[in-house]
Design a protein around this nucleic acid. Structure first.
Length: 112
DNA sequence: CGTCTGACGATAT
DNA sequence: TATATCGCCAGAC
């Protein structure tokens, strides 16, 4: 009953406010080192209670083109959490990878 | 089953 | 630095 998508949602829901993860990191934490694309597909249909905005590309920038989750919205949501961008009209994080979520040993052991 | 797609990522040119 | 290409994975058909 625990599909890959649901595992993605469970993990993303645990990302603390003000922190982010890359698609590749999410996949790796779920045991699928090369499943970055699948993570993107999963977030495409994520429930409303999933903080999808906290997942970005490996280069530290917003890469969504989904009409339901537009880049402007993702940018606004992240700014509201205290995450800074390089410029007013930029979709690249200013402090990446400093804002990457660093999981503690307890958190790593408690992953789904 | 085979084939295609996509909010990726690494490598090549 | 900017594209282009290729490999990978899960889901849709």
């Amino acid at each position: 009953m625990s599909s890959f998508n649901e595992r993605v949602y469970t993990l993303v829901r645990r990302i603390p406010r003000g922190k982010v993860l890359t698609y590749g990191r999410v996949a790796a934490l779920l045991g699928v080192p090369r499943g970055a694309r699948a993570v993107g597909w999963a977030l495409h249909g994520a429930p409303e209670d999933v903080p999808w905005q906290r997942v970005i590309s490996a280069r530290g920038c917003i890469s969504t083109r989904c009409p339901e989750h537009p880049p402007q919205l993702q940018r606004a949501l992240l700014v509201a959490e205290g995450i800074r961008f390089k410029a007013e009209d930029s979709f690249a994080l200013a402090d990446f990878p400093a804002v990457l979520w660093q999981l503690s040993d307890e958190e790593l052991a408690d992953l789904p």
